[in-house]
Design a binder for these strands. Sequence first.
DNA 1: TTGTAGGCGTTATCAT
DNA 2: ATGATAACGCCTACAA
Lengths: 347, 347
Amino acid sequence: MADNSIRRGMGWATMADVAREAGVSLMTVSRVYKRPESVSPRTRENVLKAGARLGFLPNSVAGNLASGKTNMIGIVVPSLRNSNNATSIQGMADYLRQASYHFMIANTGYSLEDETAVVKAFVQRRPDGIVLTGTRHGQETVDLLKAAGVPVVETWETKGPFLDMATGFRNYEAAREITAHLIERGYRKIGYIDYPAIGLTRYVERLAGLKDELKAAGLPSGQIVSPLEAQDLYQDASSFRGGAVGLQMLQGKYDIDAVLCASDILAVGALFECQRQGIAVPRQMAVAGFGDFEIAAEVHPGLTTIRTNGYQIGWNAAEMLVQRILQPDADIPLRDVGYELVTRGST
Amino acid sequence: MADNSIRRGMGWATMADVAREAGVSLMTVSRVYKRPESVSPRTRENVLKAGARLGFLPNSVAGNLASGKTNMIGIVVPSLRNSNNATSIQGMADYLRQASYHFMIANTGYSLEDETAVVKAFVQRRPDGIVLTGTRHGQETVDLLKAAGVPVVETWETKGPFLDMATGFRNYEAAREITAHLIERGYRKIGYIDYPAIGLTRYVERLAGLKDELKAAGLPSGQIVSPLEAQDLYQDASSFRGGAVGLQMLQGKYDIDAVLCASDILAVGALFECQRQGIAVPRQMAVAGFGDFEIAAEVHPGLTTIRTNGYQIGWNAAEMLVQRILQPDADIPLRDVGYELVTRGST
DNA sequence: TTGTAGGCGTTATCAT
DNA sequence: ATGATAACGCCTACAA
């Protein structure tokens, strides 16, 4: 055991090893890898060569402990295989990458208990920031985040109150707008396929927008079905099927000539069901969705929907966190990414 | 500065604080949070109460440094918004969660350089294991992983050589099987919509399987188009469109009565294009895919495809890593999750 | 079952 | 520009 520095370690070369090899102090090595410009070129080259010779890679864990910064973001989403979030996650990933942050991610399956567990596990790893989906959180989660004092962004909504920062779009207004579009197109018997009523405020908002717009037009506003169970939201497959089943439910209960859905996947499911039943879209039945997922433009006929910029939401969330991290007392206002009615052949 | 323990810290209570509060030693506190059963119930209660009073949450970063274990897995995927991987990621997430591991994830955009960068960044954080997608990796990546000595699983393929462990299915055989199905159904003019030829071995295998099966049947095996660029693989939207464009390309160059696609998303795109052109599927044109993604069962007509268990691949990968971590010298053999031809209305 | 001592590999701070 | 020293908060190893 001539080399005192490899005792409990895992065989890795450490900065001390590199320092010895290069004939400089440990701190110089640290500087070379952290702020290369703060070291003279000559020394820097020597150290880098010594490091390469030893196969040295800085141990971030040690650095994190010493500096109190982890350069790690925790992302909490309801589901990983729901296309709803994928684009948004990619937006965060892209921003974080260029800002030299990494992220851990975990899903809650729409359960508040699981969300608390996830947040607790994350907080123990001392992330520099946390992204949550939506604004519905258990009290324990809220307390945990408050105690941790970690920057938090909530996504997909613009209606507070928020824990800290937020970015999203106006779900209520968007729902009114697409409903108004259906009415303007001449549809009078409009059904709605909703997500399970588990208190997700973004869907509560959409439903409220639909109802208010229908009422304002003097149309029936109670033609609503909710074919999914909470656990179905976990993956897209159920939502496709939910759209089909939802349409059947509407057909059984009401006389409808248009169906609006809480998400594009539901709407595509309903559209497929129309194809199976031989119902002409949009002549006999209009179909409209929410989200403008990639598939919306590809189905035939194309799906009328509300376009929201999920990628931008993710990008924003990451950017807001990093801004706050770099400038802890910055006041970071809500960012509304907007929405846009996209009319296609289905209405 | 009465309290010596909060100097550079971030305001968090530490085990030392809890120890003082509970009147025990620091080690007892550590044990309470790590192996509660190794502490007497009475002491444990006291410590937990003291911890709760101080809002204590163990700092994993410090624990990681001291123990040399991070309970963290690094997952490297080509893209985050490609449904190809989402199910597999969920499989890993579900296994890792119940095993008390967390994961970081990063995407490479199918670039070897980016993969190296990602792996390097991961390795610096000292994950206990790493999951890679596919078997095509740059030399630098390979060297890095070898030097790190971290357990690695490669996914989606069963044909080595592998860096370490692997789980996937037999792409070549699966492609032969679905091609044979088309031939058996009476199709003789079979076109293939391929992914970009960037050396992804799983797609190389599929193409080889198709060609060999066609040749064995004495059919033309060169009717192949590749409508996508490498960067298009990044998201599903391009693949839908690629399927449509690919079909048009095949129609322009060849006289085909069936189209097989390197993935379901391409196939669905081709199917939608048939709908737009008013081509009857499967009477005038058969369409087949690869993967049995969720949408395959939902389109009309349903898509004939190769079902693979992406969720299981993810689950396996995580399980294999954890096994190896717990038992470093264990020999963990390749796991083939198999595949299954699923025939639906499109052929 | 509980405690003591020492170290994990890096960074902050203060000197030089 | 470089170095010496003391943390960062926890865990391993060993002792009591």
